[in-house]
């Protein structure tokens, strides 16, 4: 059987929120080490990869690997009923035809339980190679969210270029062009406010702003976002979840005609 108890159930709620605008049906893979998700959006433009280590849980038991096939809009409806400080418990039998969810709150003494029918979802697994990227940028996730949200008024495509000057986001449309430059900045005492740019060679790639905005739904999961780029390759946008896991998005670049 599978049984997992997460004291901060809100983490799981935020994970669901971070992917539900990209995919509808998803398998959560349970193993002895972790819960994980890998799925592509229906347009095959973006890939989400999530991992949450068993060490994130107060209790974790998974007798044999299983996939929980979930409909995210339904899961999201159930999580709307979860309180901010609730503990979450997940349970499934090895047959994995239903998932039990429990939201417990010691303070108010409430226990909510739900039984969710699971689906058999045929998933295409992609092999993502472990690549050494030419540019790696770490920046506050709230800044990244603000930039890609603000640039939407200028156009549909964002050019992201990493040079010695810094990291530049540009969008061009009918009304003109907008550029936002982030320079390396490690002045703040708080490490989460730092912008660090690790560049081996300059990279310039174009991406759909619509997708970059979908990815920023993961902002509440992490104060920091890590962008990794290499010429001609999909960008990696990673939101680390403390030392316990991550949500990573891969987005295929647009190519000039």
């Amino acid at each position: 059987m599978f049984e997992a108890r997460l004291a901060n159930g809100n983490i799981f709620k935020m994970i669901v929120e971070s992917i539900r605008e990209l995919v509808v049906d998803v398998n959560i893979d349970c193993s002895t080490e972790e819960l994980s998700i890998q799925c592509m959006d229906s347009a095959h433009v973006a890939l989400v990869s999530m991992s949450l280590s068993q060490s994130a849980f107060d209790h974790f038991r998974c007798d044999r690997s299983l996939s929980l096939g979930l409909n995210l809009p339904n899961v999201s409806k159930i999580f709307k009923m979860m309180g901010r400080d609730d503990t979450m418990v997940l349970k499934a039998e090895d047959s994995a035809d239903k998932l039990m969810l429990m939201f417990e709150n010691d303070k108010s003494g409430t226990i909510a339980d739900f039984e969710l029918k699971l689906m058999a979802i045929e998933a295409e697994q992609l092999g993502v190679p472990d690549t050494a990227y030419k540019c790696s940028i770490s920046m506050p996730s709230s800044e990244f969210q603000r930039i890609v949200r603000d640039l939407q008024v200028m156009g549909d495509t964002c050019k992201i270029s990493c040079t010695k000057e810094g990291l530049k986001f540009s969008a061009t449309g009918q009304i003109g062009t907008g550029n936002i430059l982030m320079r390396q900045n490690v002045a703040s005492e708080k490490e989460e406010d730092h912008v660090t740019i690790d560049m081996e060679e300059p990279v310039e790639l174009n991406f759909a702003l619509r997708y970059l905005n979908f990815f920023t739904k993961a902002t509440p999961l992490s104060p920091t976002v890590i962008l990794k780029m290499s010429p001609g390759l999909p960008i990696v946008i990673e939101y680390p979840i403390e030392q316990l896991g991550h949500v990573k998005y891969y987005l295929a670049p647009k190519m000039e005609e």
Binding site: V45, Q125, P129, L251, A252, K254, E256, E257
Partner: peptide, 14 residues
């Protein structure tokens, strides 16, 4: 406007 690439062109199915 640039054309959108398909992600499966970069990552093979396993």
């Amino acid at each position: 406007t640039p054309m959108q690439n398909d992600l499966s062109e970069f990552f093979a199915m396993v």
